[in-house]
Structures are given as structure tokens and as C-alpha cells.
């Protein structure tokens, strides 16, 4: 699946990258990302995930063709 990250997460990961491991849920993806870069784990804990422009919950079932966006807490305004 393709992953895209924003803002502070770009300090831990490439802006876009691909994960080939067979991850089933958002919860597993969050843990996997923290495993790839342990320094990101505190930020990842408070990130939301989105697929097709909609936020998805931790139990959301991922497929290999999903484009997943990782959204840190907002800091607009």
C-alpha cells in the first residue's frame, strides 16, 4: 500500500513511500510505522489515518491497493 505523510511526520519518513508487508488494519499500520522509526511513535499515537479522503478508525481493514494518508494533529490558523 502507498503511504503519504504530512507536516512533522516528514521528519521521520519520506513524504510518500510504499509498504509491502501484509498489514490488515490501521492499528497494525500504526504499529508498523512506529517499528520502522521508533522516534515517530509519540507522534503516531496522536495521528489520524485517512483513505479516499475520509478518516478511518483503527479497526479499518486495509487492502494492498489502499493509499493511506497519515494526518498529525491540526495546527492551522
Amino acid at each position: 500500500m502507498k503511504i503519504e505523510v504530512f507536516a512533522i511526520l516528514k521528519e521521520y519518513f519520506d513524504k510518500e513511500f510504499e509498504i509491502k508487508d501484509p498489514l490488515k488494519t490501521v492499528e497494525e499500520l500504526r504499529a508498523h510505522l512506529a517499528f520502522l522509526n521508533p522516534e515517530s511513535s509519540n507522534v503516531l499515537k496522536i495521528c489520524r489515518f485517512a483513505v479516499h479522503d475520509e478518516f478511518v478508525a483503527d479497526h479499518y481493514q486495509l487492502t494492498g491497493s489502499d493509499n493511506v494518508v497519515v494526518i498529525p494533529p491540526s495546527s492551522g490558523g
Binding site: F6, A7, I8, P72, P73, S74, S75, G76
Partner: peptide, 25 residues
């Protein structure tokens, strides 16, 4: 908008440092 919209600011300070800041906590 400030709490919910996926928009982020990065602050660039005059001392040359930068920080992704002002997160909703």
C-alpha cells in the same frame, strides 16, 4: 478549522531554527 482541518504550520524563527508548532493538544 483550527482544531479539525488537516492544515499544519511550521514556524521559522529568526535564530534559524524551525518547529512544526501549535498542534491541537
Amino acid at each position: 478549522i483550527k482544531h479539525e482541518a488537516p492544515i499544519w504550520k511550521c514556524e521559522f524563527f529568526t535564530d534559524g531554527t524551525k518547529e512544526w508548532g501549535g498542534n491541537c493538544n
